[in-house]
Protein backbone atom coordinates (compact mmCIF):
# COMPACT_ATOMS: atom_id res chain seq x y z
CA UNK A 1 0.00 0.00 0.00
CA UNK A 2 2.64 2.52 1.08
CA UNK A 3 4.98 1.47 -1.72
CA UNK A 4 2.13 1.98 -4.22
CA UNK A 5 1.47 5.48 -2.88
CA UNK A 6 5.22 6.23 -2.97
CA UNK A 7 5.46 5.12 -6.59
CA UNK A 8 2.33 7.07 -7.54
CA UNK A 9 3.69 10.27 -5.95
CA UNK A 10 6.98 9.88 -7.82
CA UNK A 11 5.14 9.24 -11.10
CA UNK A 12 3.03 12.41 -10.64
CA UNK A 13 6.27 14.33 -10.04
CA UNK A 14 7.84 12.86 -13.19
CA UNK A 15 4.66 13.78 -15.11
CA UNK A 16 4.92 17.41 -14.01
CA UNK A 17 8.58 17.51 -15.11
CA UNK A 18 7.69 15.82 -18.40
CA UNK A 19 4.90 18.19 -19.35
CA UNK A 20 5.78 21.52 -17.72
CA UNK A 21 9.51 21.77 -17.10
CA UNK A 22 12.44 22.50 -19.37
CA UNK A 23 14.52 19.46 -20.40
CA UNK A 24 16.10 17.81 -17.38
CA UNK A 25 19.23 15.70 -17.01
CA UNK A 26 17.38 12.41 -16.33
CA UNK A 27 15.34 12.62 -19.54
CA UNK A 28 18.36 13.45 -21.69
CA UNK A 29 20.37 10.57 -20.14
CA UNK A 30 17.51 8.18 -20.84
CA UNK A 31 17.14 9.65 -24.36
CA UNK A 32 13.55 10.63 -23.63
CA UNK A 33 12.41 13.64 -25.61
CA UNK A 34 9.60 15.44 -23.81
CA UNK A 35 9.24 17.62 -26.92
CA UNK A 36 7.59 20.98 -26.50
CA UNK A 37 6.80 21.40 -22.83
CA UNK A 38 3.64 23.26 -21.90
CA UNK A 39 4.49 26.87 -21.14
CA UNK A 40 2.47 28.23 -18.25
CA UNK A 41 2.14 31.50 -16.41
CA UNK A 42 4.52 31.07 -13.49
CA UNK A 43 3.68 34.57 -12.25
CA UNK A 44 0.56 32.99 -10.82
CA UNK A 45 1.59 31.70 -7.33
CA UNK A 46 -0.61 28.62 -7.60
CA UNK A 47 0.84 27.66 -11.00
CA UNK A 48 4.36 28.34 -9.67
CA UNK A 49 3.67 26.05 -6.74
CA UNK A 50 2.24 23.31 -8.99
CA UNK A 51 5.17 23.39 -11.43
CA UNK A 52 8.18 24.12 -9.24
CA UNK A 53 7.31 23.17 -5.64
CA UNK A 54 4.86 20.26 -5.92
CA UNK A 55 7.35 17.83 -7.56
CA UNK A 56 9.82 18.51 -4.72
CA UNK A 57 7.08 18.02 -2.12
CA UNK A 58 6.01 14.73 -3.77
CA UNK A 59 9.61 13.50 -3.93
CA UNK A 60 10.16 14.27 -0.23
CA UNK A 61 6.82 12.76 0.81
CA UNK A 62 7.78 9.55 -1.06
CA UNK A 63 11.09 9.46 0.77
CA UNK A 64 9.39 9.99 4.14
CA UNK A 65 6.81 7.29 3.41
CA UNK A 66 9.57 4.78 2.59
CA UNK A 67 11.23 5.68 5.90
CA UNK A 68 8.21 4.33 7.78
CA UNK A 69 9.57 0.84 6.97
CA UNK A 70 12.88 1.59 8.66
CA UNK A 71 12.02 4.01 11.44
CA UNK A 72 11.15 1.35 14.03
CA UNK A 73 14.14 -0.87 13.31
CA UNK A 74 16.91 -0.84 15.92
CA UNK A 75 20.60 -0.19 15.47
CA UNK A 76 22.54 3.06 15.47
CA UNK A 77 23.46 2.83 11.78
CA UNK A 78 19.82 2.41 10.81
CA UNK A 79 18.82 5.37 13.01
CA UNK A 80 21.61 7.42 11.46
CA UNK A 81 20.44 6.54 7.93
CA UNK A 82 16.83 7.43 8.81
CA UNK A 83 18.14 10.79 10.07
CA UNK A 84 20.12 11.26 6.85
CA UNK A 85 17.04 10.42 4.77
CA UNK A 86 14.78 12.86 6.66
CA UNK A 87 17.36 15.64 6.40
CA UNK A 88 18.39 14.70 2.83
CA UNK A 89 16.58 17.53 0.96
CA UNK A 90 17.92 20.09 3.45
CA UNK A 91 21.43 18.67 3.03
CA UNK A 92 21.11 18.86 -0.76
CA UNK A 93 19.83 22.45 -0.62
CA UNK A 94 22.69 23.41 1.73
CA UNK A 95 25.08 21.80 -0.74
CA UNK A 96 23.51 23.82 -3.54
CA UNK A 97 23.84 27.01 -1.49
CA UNK A 98 27.59 26.43 -1.06
CA UNK A 99 27.99 25.21 -4.66
CA UNK A 100 29.01 21.64 -3.71
CA UNK A 101 25.89 20.13 -5.32
CA UNK A 102 24.64 20.93 -8.82
CA UNK A 103 21.36 22.83 -8.92
CA UNK A 104 20.00 26.12 -7.70
CA UNK A 105 19.42 26.95 -4.06
CA UNK A 106 15.87 28.20 -3.55
CA UNK A 107 14.13 29.36 -0.36
CA UNK A 108 10.80 28.17 -1.82
CA UNK A 109 12.24 24.64 -1.88
CA UNK A 110 13.18 24.89 1.80
CA UNK A 111 9.66 26.12 2.68
CA UNK A 112 8.16 23.31 0.57
CA UNK A 113 10.26 20.66 2.34
CA UNK A 114 9.36 22.09 5.77
CA UNK A 115 5.63 22.05 4.92
CA UNK A 116 5.90 18.48 3.59
CA UNK A 117 7.64 17.36 6.79
CA UNK A 118 4.95 19.05 8.91
CA UNK A 119 2.16 17.37 6.88
CA UNK A 120 3.93 14.02 7.20
CA UNK A 121 4.33 14.42 10.98
CA UNK A 122 0.66 15.37 11.32
CA UNK A 123 -0.37 12.25 9.34
CA UNK A 124 2.34 9.93 10.72
CA UNK A 125 0.09 8.37 13.38
CA UNK A 126 -2.43 7.31 10.74
CA UNK A 127 0.35 6.03 8.46
CA UNK A 128 1.82 3.87 11.25
CA UNK A 129 -1.63 2.53 12.14
CA UNK A 130 -2.16 1.65 8.47
CA UNK A 131 1.24 -0.03 8.28
CA UNK A 132 0.67 -2.10 11.44
CA UNK A 133 -2.87 -3.08 10.46
CA UNK A 134 -1.46 -4.47 7.18
CA UNK A 135 1.32 -6.35 8.99
CA UNK A 136 -0.97 -8.04 11.56
Amino acid sequence: MILSVTTLLLLIGVGIYFFFRTPIIAFSKLHIDSGEYIACNTNNPLVYFMVFCLPDALWYMSLLLVQTFFIEEKGWLNRFLVGVAISLPFLLETGQYFGCVSGTFDWFDIITYCLTLIIFLLCSRKIFLLLHSKQS
Binding site: L10, Y17, R21, T22, I24, I25, N78, L92, G103
Partner: peptide, 21 residues
Amino acid sequence: IALQAVVISAFIMIAAGSGEN
Protein backbone atom coordinates in the same frame (compact mmCIF):
# COMPACT_ATOMS: atom_id res chain seq x y z
CA ILE B 1 21.03 -1.15 6.19
CA ALA B 2 21.69 -2.31 2.61
CA LEU B 3 18.07 -1.65 1.63
CA GLN B 4 18.14 1.78 3.28
CA ALA B 5 21.37 2.63 1.44
CA VAL B 6 19.74 1.64 -1.86
CA VAL B 7 16.63 3.77 -1.07
CA ILE B 8 18.68 6.86 -0.15
CA SER B 9 20.91 6.45 -3.22
CA ALA B 10 17.85 6.11 -5.46
CA PHE B 11 16.30 9.31 -4.08
CA ILE B 12 19.62 11.18 -4.45
CA MET B 13 19.74 10.01 -8.07
CA ILE B 14 16.17 11.24 -8.66
CA ALA B 15 17.10 14.62 -7.14
CA ALA B 16 20.25 14.83 -9.26
CA GLY B 17 18.38 13.77 -12.39
CA SER B 18 15.77 16.48 -11.92
CA GLY B 19 18.40 19.17 -12.50
CA GLU B 20 17.85 21.26 -15.60
CA ASN B 21 19.72 20.17 -18.67
